[in-house]
Structure formats: C-alpha cells, structure tokens
Amino acid sequence: MMTLGSATRISTAAPAAFFACWGDMAGWPEWNADTEWVRLDGPFAAGSTGVLKPKGGPKTKFVITELTDTVFTDVSLLMGARLTFHHTVAPTAEGGTEVAVTVTLAGPLARLWNVILGKGIAASLGRDLAALVRTAEGERGAEGAVAA
C-alpha cells in the first residue's frame, strides 16, 4: 500500500457537519473541485455502493467500507487497484473539530495508478479539505445543525 497524500484542518463546525457534507454526495462537487458528480446507490452507510465521475476521467465504482461517528472511508475500485479515502473527525479542546483525510493506493496496479493519479490527488487534497471546511461551517454552522 502506498500513501498518495494527507491533509488536516481545524474547523469551528461540529463533527456532525462533516458527516452531513459527506452524506450529501450530490453536493460533493461544491467542495471537491475534481469531482463532476457522485451517485450513492442506497443509504449513507457502511457497505453502500455508488458511482462517481471525476472531471476528465471515467466513471468509477466505489464502496463505503467504514462509517462510524468518527470515521468515513470510501474505496474507489480501479482496475487492479483500490483507491482509499480515509476521513476522520475529532473534537478539539477549543470546541471545534480536527478533520483529516489520507488517500492510499493498494493492489497489483497501484504503481501504475500512482503515475496516473498520484500527483493530482496529492495536489488537490489540501484545497478540497479547505473547501469542505468552508462548506461545513457555512451551510451547517458551528453546531453542526443542517440549515433549513
């Protein structure tokens, strides 16, 4: 397994606000600049599957492999590799949230996919996480309640 990159940000939004953003997959393009659209085929729950369309890339199937009150992990199923996005949230002592994402590649064709995707993903992680923080803070507020 190889790590493509990771990013961490501190936010005033509650952890629930991040799960609200992640669970609203149709809204991902608002904070993930590399995503054209996402469709989830079922509830936002571990084991659910879907399809996403990266900008300039082919449709990709994914599965939610872990979903708890502190972790959201989704795995994109590439030919010969698995691209894993592991997201975590943790409350801070100041009443905010530390949100982090780590992206890894595994499988027999991981090195090839790293050449194709690695630099782009590594370059966009910080930007997209900052946009997610703005979305969580702006649309759901510091307390994590979804705006009406």
Score class of each variant (00 low, 15 high):
M1A: 12
M1W: 10
M2F: 05
L4I: 00
A7L: 00
R9G: 06
I10S: 12
I10W: 02
S11F: 03
S11H: 03
A14M: 05
A17Y: 07
C21K: 08
G23K: 14
M25T: 14
E30I: 10
W31V: 05
T35I: 11
V38G: 11
R39S: 14
L40K: 13
D41T: 01
P43C: 10
F44T: 00
F44Y: 02
A46G: 09
G47V: 09
T49A: 09
V51A: 09
K53N: 06
P54H: 08
P58A: 11
K59L: 14
V63Y: 01
V63L: 00
V63W: 00
I64Y: 02
I64R: 00
E66H: 04
F72T: 03
V75H: 03
V75N: 01
S76T: 03
S76Q: 11
L77N: 12
L77W: 00
L78S: 06
L78N: 00
G80V: 07
A81N: 15
L83W: 15
L83V: 15
F85A: 14
A90N: 10
P91A: 09
P91R: 07
T92R: 05
A93H: 02
A93L: 10
V99Y: 05
A100P: 02
A100V: 05
L105E: 04
A106H: 08
A106I: 13
G107L: 13
L109Y: 06
L109E: 01
R111Q: 10
W113K: 06
V115T: 11
L117P: 01
G118L: 09
A122V: 10
G126H: 05
G126R: 07
R127D: 14
D128P: 01
A130Y: 09
R134M: 11
A136T: 00
E137P: 08
G138C: 06
R140H: 14
G141S: 09
G141H: 05
A145H: 15
